[in-house]
Amino acid sequence: MHNLGELERAIMDTLWSSDQALSANEVRDRLPSRDNATTTVLTVLSRLEKKGFVARDRGVRPHRYRAKLSRPEHTAALMHQVLSHEHDRDAALARFVGTVGDDGARALRRILNDLRKAKD
């Protein structure tokens, strides 16, 4: 791995493609590149946890990790941030809908639905 960013990315891809929560060792074994130490993987996992991308199950030993949101849900949340306004969220959204027309309005509704689902 060239840098931390790429390792973060590879670990998220691993978690996203797994149906169940994984231990740090399992994550390491599934990474495309084999030369990562478990401690490095653990460090990156806790970084990702702090950033809100990874959830950790502390009830078992070793701890198990899973992606907090699916990739589409996370993308929807990011898009929502991009489109929303710091102060008057709704006004900005309304303006955006006005800008992109019906297709945009439909897409926006989809984003909001995704978000609602993600929150449940």
Binding site: V82, L83, S84, R95, T99, V100, G104
Partner: peptide, 19 residues
């Protein structure tokens, strides 16, 4: 005409362009 653009993100609250 097809789409708006959001300008510079993180600078002006995503700067949604008005119609």
């Amino acid at each position: 005409r097809t789409v708006g653009d959001a300008g510079d993100l993180g600078v002006m609250d995503s700067g949604i362009t008005d119609p």
